[in-house]
């Protein structure tokens, strides 16, 4: 556990080893392991209830684990002494239900955490926030409240809000699952651009063509274990495990 040498970029930025997690008697994760290098984009796919959300919520300590190890930039997440807030500054997260703060405008949503959590200068934060909203193509929507935005627009504000903390890793939990088919694309384009910029991304998604296009590596989970994984080409065209085949057969 105690690995005192500082993390360097040639080591995995997120390293997950034998993670087990239960809710009461029910074991959701039954020994999951994988590594992600800086700048990698990985997609986690799998049937509903297989533990995908649980797994990525463990990475930023929104959920705790019973056994195993999760390291982010060499720092053990599963550690009672862990500074959770320091970890969460490095790991951004975007949710299926956007979860924007409804009493704040788009701009305020993006500015809030850098101002209140990092204590940065308002002038700098505002400049960065406006730039981020522009980057997710929401120029002109700065003063709109979440209730006045479409689902796709809200989700892009949520992405900008998370990026405003300048994280090293981004977690996306089925961020397009609640969207209309037309607005899915605009959110996926935003994520694709983010990946192209070199952001380390862990995505839970049901968008198979998107996963194939953007992912460096695909992990297929079922009932708390990783059944099969590989680069998109092998994974989609040459799946070996019958469960993977069944799942892909259903979805493609």
């Amino acid at each position: 556990m105690s690995d005192n040498s500082p993390w360097t970029a040639d080591q995995p930025i997120v390293s997950i080893k034998n993670v087990r997690k239960s809710y009461g008697e029910f074991e959701v994760l039954k020994g999951v392991s994988f590594d992600i290098m800086k700048g990698d984009v990985i997609c986690i796919i799998g049937p509903s209830g297989s533990g995908k959300s649980t797994l990525i919520r463990c990475i930023n300590a929104l959920a705790d684990i019973q056994d195993g190890s999760i390291k982010v930039e060499g720092q053990e997440v599963h550690d009672a002494k862990l500074d959770k807030l320091a970890l969460r500054r490095k790991v951004g997260m975007v949710f299926q239900q956007y979860n924007l703060f409804p009493h704040k405008t788009a701009l305020q949503n993006v500015m809030m955490a850098p101002l209140k959590v990092l204590g940065q200068q308002k002038k700098d934060v505002e400049m960065r926030a406006r730039a981020l909203l522009k980057k997710v193509r929401l120029e002109g929507k700065e003063n709109a409240y979440p209730g006045e935005l479409s689902g796709g627009q809200q989700q892009r504000v949520a992405i900008a809000r998370s990026l405003a903390m300048q994280p090293d890793v981004m977690l996306f939990d089925e961020v397009t699952a609640a969207l209309d088919p037309e607005t899915v694309k605009e959110v996926l384009i935003t994520i694709k651009e983010l990946a192209a910029d070199g952001m380390t991304c862990i995505l839970v998604t049901h968008e198979m063509s998107f996963a194939r296009e953007v992912a460096d590596h695909i992990y297929f989970t079922d009932r708390g274990v990783i059944v099969e994984h590989g680069p998109p080409s092998t994974f989609f065209d040459n799946a070996q495990d019958p469960r993977t085949k069944a799942f892909l057969g259903q979805i493609l």
Binding site: L85, V91, N99, F101, M112, A113
Partner: peptide
């Protein structure tokens, strides 16, 4: 609860979340 999770994932402490995000709503 999504409001709590969003705030926590942005590194707000519990007290900050309560006073700056939950109570104003």
């Amino acid at each position: 609860s999504g409001q709590w999770e969003a705030a926590e994932s942005l590194a707000f402490s519990r007290t900050q979340t309560l006073w700056q995000i939950i109570l104003p709503q």
